[in-house]
């Protein structure tokens, strides 16, 4: 058997997860529909005044993104856990950290990226100006991978527990507060006529920080859960 390079392994894991998800498209769509629904509920709850909606759009979209990414977290490892694939992955000579990173990337492509792509449509619903929508997309592009990464740790820790779905939100949501603050802050800065660069830089910093540590920590968490 030829030796796999790190990127070869990464690509293999991502390709496999994407293929599996494409066989069950409903799962991906549910998360997306949930996101659209939650965002659309806000105007019904607080009233249709365009000024207020424009003002709260960034925050609403971010909170909804946070919630819908929590929704898909329990699925990150559970299917592989049930059919025994995860055990084989841990026995494999290749690095578990890299495989976990692959699963995180695949999870983001299935749950984070669709949100980034549909966000402009929802932004228009809230009458956001074009430049704010651009920044919102950029902030979501930087921030949603962090949600998947922090979420991976929570998903690994709660693997196979009863009530794991609610528990994982309880563990992960407090840790995602900085992403929420700076993600929504970037949108608000643009709407207020300021520069969003500092908020976006911080989101980028979170992304790099999480990219370095979270796959390793999630791999350790998986080892604890699978013992």
């Amino acid at each position: 058997m030829s030796r796999l390079s790190v990127f070869g392994l990464l690509g293999l894991v991502i390709k496999r997860d994407l293929l599996l998800a494409m066989r069950r498209r409903a799962d991906v769509l549910t998360t997306l529909i949930f996101f659209v629904m939650v965002v659309s509920l806000f105007p019904l709850g607080v009233g249709p005044e365009p000024d207020m909606l424009r003002k709260m759009a960034g925050g609403v979209l971010w909170v909804a993104a946070l919630l819908s990414s929590m929704l898909s977290l329990p699925r990150m490892f559970s299917a592989d856990h049930i059919d025994g694939t995860l055990e084989q992955m841990m026995l494999a000579p290749q690095s578990l950290t890299v495989m976990v990173l692959g699963k995180i990337v695949a999870h983001w492509m299935l749950s984070g990226l669709p949100l980034v792509l549909i966000a402009p449509v929802l932004g228009l619903q809230f009458d956001m100006p074009a430049d704010a929508i651009g920044i919102l997309m950029l902030a979501l592009l930087l921030g949603t991978p962090v949600l998947s990464m922090i979420g991976a740790v929570g998903a690994a820790l709660t693997l196979g527990l009863r009530g794991g779905g609610v528990l994982v939100s309880l563990l992960v949501l407090p840790l995602t507060i900085p992403v929420l603050i700076f993600g929504a802050g970037a949108v608000e800065a643009v709407s207020g006529g300021m520069d969003a660069a500092s908020n976006l830089s911080l989101l980028g910093a979170f992304l790099l920080f999480a990219l370095v540590f979270s796959p390793f920590v999630a791999a350790q968490a998986l080892r604890i859960s699978m013992e």
């Binding site: 820790l157 527990l161 528990l167 563990l171 968490a221 604890i224 859960s225």
Partner: peptide, 27 residues
Amino acid sequence: LGFIALQASIEDPRRADKASALLAIVG
């Protein structure tokens, strides 16, 4: 509350200790 909830929902005490320790460190 997250730490306590995680510990409470894992039955095996050894796994509960390790999992909640990792959570506390990340926290």
